[in-house]
Amino acid sequence: MDQLLQSAGVSGRAAVLDGGLGQLLADERPDLAAADGLWVAGMAARAPAAIQAVHRRYLDAGADIIMTATYQSSVDGYIAAGLAADEHEAAALFEAALRAAVNARRDYLAAAGDTRRPLIAVSLGSIGATLGDGSEYTGDFGGGMTAADIKSFHLRRFRTIAACLESPALHGQIDLLALETIPSLVEVEAVVAALGEAAQAGVRLPPAWVALTAASESQMPGGGTVEAAASAAASSPHVCAVGINCVPVDLVPALAACVQRATSKPLVCYPNGQAWLGSADQWKNRDKQTPLEEFAACARHWIHAGAAVVGGCCRTGPEHIQALAEMVRDADAQPRPAHK
């Protein structure tokens, strides 16, 4: 991970990750939303130029890492939504979403004259994120789904991504995989098993981070402790960092401590900018959002506690990332110790 950050021009300090994509676009472009369960992945399929524009906004705000609009993406999901007729067309949609991020970085570098080369991570949510029922927040994926089923799902998606990365437009352009919002120890173990099986089969993938979500200061919503899940994730040689995402800001210190007790691998922290109370209408109450100054001040503490990457998840936007970037580049953001 340190080598990647060094290649991005952010060696010696924490890297700034981007913020949310789906909710930002849903707020600004409600015409792009559709009831297909694909959320931002569907938006990327219908309007890749809009996704590319959001990536560029995050880069202009100071993001060192941007994540692709593929969080809910899966072959079966694209087909079920009527966006693809078969696996080949579904893979083309994956590739188009990745190209949106690559093109945004290309245009940013051409215009900015920056010494940084921001990184691109392929966002891959829990299997629950592709079911369209919110089960990535509970770990309840429906009766009859086994650990083997979950592993098979992730392995198939890894193979699709690897095939996309062999295309001339993407070869050498993607730096990381971001396995996100993983709600249970069982799924973490399935992800680790899938990464290992993919590597053994010669499937070429970038290094991955695994980001966990939580129901409390120590427990996963779908079963298992955060510490045990972090240990399981870190056991994989294909995992370069372990983190937490899609949780309230006030849970981050305790959850970060759980992760750090489990592993010395770099820590990634990107919580929500507003607490989720289970209602879409609740998101509309902007008074409940964490103020920008408070969000940046909290992130300063995460960095001083050892976080290598800080950013935002739901209900964070370019203004949050700009606040983080300004804080990180301030003189009081101390250099980080070296990580494995």
Score class of each variant (00 low, 15 high):
D2V: 11
D2R: 12
G20N: 05
A26S: 15
D27P: 03
A34I: 00
A34F: 02
D36Y: 02
M43H: 06
A50I: 02
I51L: 10
Q52T: 09
Q52C: 08
G62D: 01
D64N: 13
I66K: 00
A69W: 01
V75N: 02
A81W: 00
G82S: 06
E87S: 09
A92H: 03
A111W: 06
L119Q: 04
A121C: 11
A121T: 10
V122A: 14
I127F: 13
G128S: 07
A129Q: 00
I150C: 07
R156C: 03
R156L: 08
S167L: 09
D175A: 11
L176W: 02
E180R: 07
E180N: 03
I182N: 04
P183C: 06
V186Y: 01
E187H: 08
A198S: 13
G202C: 08
V203C: 11
L205K: 09
P206N: 07
W209N: 08
A214G: 10
A215Q: 13
P221L: 05
A229W: 02
A230K: 04
A230S: 08
V239S: 06
N245F: 09
C246G: 07
P248G: 06
V252W: 05
A254V: 14
C258Y: 10
L267P: 03
V268N: 04
G278K: 05
G278N: 10
A280E: 09
K284W: 12
R286I: 13
K288Q: 15
K288W: 13
Q289M: 14
Q289E: 15
E294Q: 15
A299M: 12
V310M: 03
G312H: 02
E319M: 14
I321F: 08
I321P: 00
M327S: 12
M327Y: 07
M327H: 04
V328I: 15
